[in-house]
């Protein structure tokens, strides 16, 4: 982690009619930092992520991701981030290497770059020998690791992971976190949501959203001390219930 901010959010507000989904959010995320973006269902996490990814415009406030302004240059943001979610990741009826070729093409990589990155990333997962297998036949844990690799294929500065480990077995879930750590050590900033509260503890920083606002933001250990709770799970329950 360095001191350079990769995500800067200042007074971000997003309204849908009279409803305020994001209410004056302000926070920074540094290069290589792993941020756990937590909150109850309906707290406004998805709205904020869409704005940070350049998919939705804020009502007011300043948002910059990877050096680009979310209002003026949302397209530049999209080129510099990776995104993976539990709901949509890869195409089930393509092979592993076809998925890499497809997404590499979308991100504008050359054929040579695609070949090289596919090889590198699959070797790292120890799945190179399976590259011609159709995705549908693979275990969920493999698919999630592959989806992560595809999301970092174009070497983005920031990776958004929306519940990447949902439904994954406990061993694979932890292997997935090792991939996250590796990416962070390479200098990629990780923005991750999860309902597994133990995973919140693996993050450098956690943000806790309640009813459109960020109620707590800091290192897991410091937050636990400040609120006098044994775990982030208890912090979550404490903040979201009051």
């Amino acid at each position: 982690m360095t001191n350079k901010n990769i995500i800067e959010v200042e007074n971000l507000v997003k309204k849908f009619g009279k409803f305020t989904a994001n209410d004056q959010l302000s926070f920074n995320v540094k290069k290589g930092e792993i941020l756990g973006f937590l909150g109850a269902n309906g707290a406004g996490k998805t709205t904020a992520i869409k704005i940070l990814c350049g998919i939705s415009a804020p009502t007011s406030g300043k948002v910059s991701v990877a050096g680009f302004d979310a209002v003026k240059h949302p397209e530049r943001i999209k080129q510099n981030i990776g995104y993976m979610s539990q709901k949509f990741s890869l195409y089930d009826d393509l092979t592993i290497s076809e998925n890499f070729r497809f997404f590499g093409g979308i991100y504008g990589l050359s054929r040579k770059q695609i070949r090289q990155r596919t090889g590198e990333l699959l070797q790292r997962l120890d799945l190179y020998d399976y590259r011609n297998r159709i995705l549908r036949s693979l275990p969920l844990g493999w698919k999630q690791k592959l989806a992560f690799s595809v999301a970092i294929m174009h070497d983005p500065q920031v990776v958004f992971l929306d519940e990447p480990t949902s439904g994954v077995d406990p061993i694979t879930r932890r292997q997935f976190w090792e991939l996250i750590y590796e990416a962070s050590e390479e200098g990629k900033t990780i923005f991750v949501t999860t309902h597994y509260m133990d995973e919140a503890e693996y993050c450098d920083t956690v943000s806790m959203m309640v009813a459109g606002q960020i109620r707590a933001f800091g290192k897991p250990r410091e937050l636990k001390e400040e609120y006098d709770v044994a775990s982030i799970n208890n912090l979550f329950i404490k903040l979201a219930r009051n």
Partner: peptide, 10 residues
């Protein structure tokens, strides 16, 4: 409770 937050799960 899949995809449901910690408070609602409780």
């Amino acid at each position: 409770t899949t995809g449901v937050d910690a408070v609602s799960r409780k």
